[in-house]
């Protein structure tokens, strides 16, 4: 009789024990992130026991007004702690900030139940804040760049040795495969323009204009070395003129930015013909820059100013 009572009590208390042993944590891999970088948020669900003891529903994506989820995934880990098995389910989210300032991530609810059971329980992560700071200049960090230079020197020496032992052609193919070519600013714009096409297909002309303006500002910031993202259209045009940009480039940039401003700030949806014109203007800016970049690659020149032949 006593045994039956004890068994019943054990059965009743089982869900409560499960609730106590499951823990949910959320952590960011960094507290500050530049606007043009990403941060990773990891939601960690942990319990004592085997991996299959608890069934965890995939949590909903993190919600934030100024962060976008660029990628998400999940993985399992099993470890032994103090002689007991500990299972962990990880949900990493790559977050892309859209705005400078503090970004708040709303609490994430994780719902789970014991394997075979039907009583769902849930736990919440605390609210997190990520500090989004001004974007850092694109390109490799100095130590990485220095490391690559050193690597290149060593590689070159190796190539010379290889040539001496008549395996130069094989070494060259290995080198080409090892080093990914770095995109030029204009190539990056071309890639971005292709990506933005999806917004047009999705029927969001305002979104397309926003993306277009952001791409142009990034390009101008890089090509002319000024803080285009922190300037309004009128001031960008002033800066371009002050930096000796050609009239055609300034005209095209002004056209794109002003038209995008209209969509962004007046709430208008430009017609397809206007979007085509903007796309063409952007292409023209890029095409004009391509020749200059090629010249620079040969001569080691500076920024394109739009005054070269063809502008």
């Amino acid at each position: 009789m006593l045994t039956a009572v004890l068994l019943a009590l054990a059965c009743l208390s089982a869900p409560a024990r499960a609730a106590q042993r499951v823990t949910v944590k959320a952590a960011l891999d960094q507290t500050r992130v530049p606007l043009n970088r990403t941060a990773t948020l990891t939601v960690r669900v942990e319990w004592e026991g085997a991996s299959g003891d608890i069934e965890v529903d995939e949590p909903s994506a993190p919600e934030s007004a100024t962060l976008e989820v660029a990628a998400a995934g999940s993985s399992n880990e099993v470890a032994t702690r103090g002689g007991n098995a500990v299972a962990t389910r990880l949900y990493p989210y790559v977050l892309k900030p859209t705005k400078v300032g503090p970004a708040e991530i709303a609490p994430i609810t994780v719902t789970y139940k014991e394997a075979g059971g039907d009583r769902e329980q849930s736990l919440q992560t605390p609210k997190l804040t990520l500090e989004v700071v001004r974007p850092v200049r694109d390109g490799l960090a100095a130590p990485v760049r220095a490391g690559l230079i050193a690597f290149s020197v060593v590689l070159l020496a190796a190539l010379l040795v290889a040539a001496a032992i008549r395996v130069r052609s094989a070494s060259r193919s290995e080198e080409a495969a090892a080093e990914e070519p770095e995109l030029t600013p204009s190539e990056r714009v071309s890639v971005a323009l292709e990506e933005h096409k999806a917004l047009r297909i999705a029927g969001t002309p305002r979104g397309y204009c926003e993306a277009l303006a952001a791409t142009l500002k990034s390009y101008l910031a890089e090509a002319f070395a000024f803080r285009a993202k922190e300037l309004s259209t009128a001031r960008i045009v002033e800066e371009l003129a002050a930096r000796g940009a050609g009239e055609e480039l300034i005209g095209r940039a002004r056209k794109v930015l002003e038209q995008c401003d209209l969509a962004k700030f007046a709430g208008t949806s430009p017609p397809a013909e206007t979007l085509d014109e903007l796309h063409d203007a952007m292409k023209a800016i890029v095409m004009a820059a391509v020749g200059v970049e090629e010249d620079q690659a040969v001569e080691g020149g500076s920024v394109p100013n739009g005054n070269e032949p063809g502008h």
Binding site: K99, V100, G101, P102, E131, V132, V133, R134, K264, F265, A266, G267
Partner: peptide
């Protein structure tokens, strides 16, 4: 006059940055 939400946020960010500049970089 029409004021887009982006402009409203820009104004609020400018004002809040005077109160807590570190939070805004």
């Amino acid at each position: 006059l029409y004021m887009d939400e982006k402009i409203e946020n820009y104004i609020v960010d400018l004002v809040l940055a005077t109160r807590d500049p570190k939070r805004y970089g």
